[in-house]
Computed example of a mutant assay.
Amino acid sequence: MILVTGATGTIGREVLRRLLSDRPVRIMARQPGRVTGAPPTARIVHGDFTDPASLADALHNVHTAFLVTNPDGDDDDDTRFLDPARAAGVRHIVKLSAAAVTDRAADDLITRRQRHNEDLLRASGIGWTLLRPRAFMSNTLPWARSIRSGQVVRALYGTSANACVDPGDVAEVAVLALTGRGRDHAGGAYTLTGPQALSASEQTAQLSELLGLPLRFEELSPQQARTGLEARYPADITSALLESARRQHSGSKAVVDPTLPGLLGRPARTFRDWASDHLDAFRPDPTASS
């Protein structure tokens, strides 16, 4: 039995789309009604990291689990999951982490939590695979509102490059590790990037070409970026995100890693590939002004 957590998130949704119906799959979600795209044979159950009884039920007869926790929030979820997983006899956990854990200069709160959670898994006695993606290409989706309303993208450090990755590619690697297709992935720690490093202004130019719209890029000042983040996140998370942006500005996120195409046997998808599949999210509504 494969257990999938984080099924309503960016990677979890893509994992569900790629799991074949011939595999027994259980999906744990705080809000089961929000789960979409699951294999028809999958069973969706209520589960919460803070509810031990629900975790025990979700983990019953599970041999492999996809673990997604939120490093922006409560940092005890990994501990809450690993203890009952070990008690239930889970043999292998595929954990979504982040590429920043390999950067010695990265010491922000979110990265420290990711490193701590990786350490917890390695020390658990359960077999493990670590997925360490660079930023997701889908992180550009919040630009859609300003593109639709004013044909503008606003971001901090617009010329700094990031080897961002298609979430679908990350999910495909996750499914390989969960199902053991191709090889044994236990003990693998995979840094996953896209095929090229792009800046926000370069992404804006590609979206402009694909949409056929004269998009413009406007640079945010650090204070403007802080104000916007503070409206959504606590102060410590805001500081961590700004520190991450400063590291990107120094060039620390521009390295393209060959691991992903080596695992998938094909090139990693480009930002243009991803954007072409998601143009409707950015396209202005032709009826909005009528």
Results as ranks from 00 to 15, higher is better:
Val90Lys: 09
Ala56Gly: 05
Val62Gln: 07
Phe81Cys: 05
Gly125Pro: 01
Gln114Gly: 00
Ala88Cys: 02
Gly125Asp: 05
Lys95Val: 07
Asp108Met: 08
Arg104Ala: 15
Ser124Ala: 10
Asp57Tyr: 02
Val101Cys: 06
Ala123Asp: 09
Ala56His: 11
Ala85Gln: 05
Ile93Gly: 04
Leu67Tyr: 00
Ala100Lys: 09
Val94Tyr: 02
Ala123Cys: 01
His116Ile: 03
Arg80His: 12
Asn61Pro: 00
Thr64Ser: 07
Arg91Cys: 04
Thr79Pro: 00
Arg104Cys: 02
Pro84Cys: 11
Phe66Val: 02
Glu118Asn: 08
Arg113Phe: 07
Val101Asn: 04
Arg86Val: 04
Asp74Ser: 06
His116Cys: 02
Asp78Met: 15
Arg122Phe: 10
Asn61Lys: 15
Thr69Phe: 03
Ala100Cys: 06
Lys95Ser: 09
Pro84Ile: 02
His116Met: 08
Thr111Asp: 04
Val94Glu: 02
Leu120Lys: 12
Asp74Gly: 04
Phe81Glu: 02
Ser124Arg: 06
Phe81Ala: 12
His60Glu: 13
Leu82Ser: 10
Leu109Val: 13
Ala99Gln: 12
Ala58Tyr: 01
Gly89Trp: 14
Thr79Glu: 15
His60Asp: 12
Leu67Arg: 01
Leu121Glu: 01
Leu121Gly: 00
Ala65Arg: 09
Leu121Ile: 10
Gly89Arg: 13
Thr79Lys: 12
Asp76Tyr: 13
Ala56Met: 04
Leu67Asn: 03
Arg115Pro: 01
Asp83Val: 14
Gln114Val: 09
Asp107Phe: 07
Ala65Met: 11
Ala123Arg: 15
Ala65Gly: 01
Gly73His: 08
Leu121Lys: 04
Asp83Gly: 02
Thr69Lys: 03
Ala106Asp: 12
Ser97Trp: 12
Arg122Ile: 10
Val62Leu: 07
Asp103Glu: 13
Asp77Asn: 13
Asp119Ala: 14
Leu82Asn: 09
Leu121Ala: 00
Val101Lys: 11
Thr69Trp: 02
Asp77Ile: 03
Ala106Phe: 13
Asn70Tyr: 00
Asp74Tyr: 11
Arg91Ser: 10
Thr111Met: 05
Ala106Val: 07
Leu120Asn: 00
Arg80Ser: 07
Thr79Phe: 13
Lys95Tyr: 11
His92Thr: 02
Ala99Thr: 05
Gly89Thr: 04
Leu96Met: 13
Asp72Cys: 07
Asp119Leu: 15
Asn117Thr: 11
Val90Asp: 01
Leu96Phe: 04
Val68Cys: 05
Arg115Phe: 11
Leu121Asn: 01
Lys95Phe: 09
Pro84Asp: 13
Ile110Gln: 12
Ala85Phe: 14
Val68Ile: 14
Asp75Asn: 14
His92Cys: 10
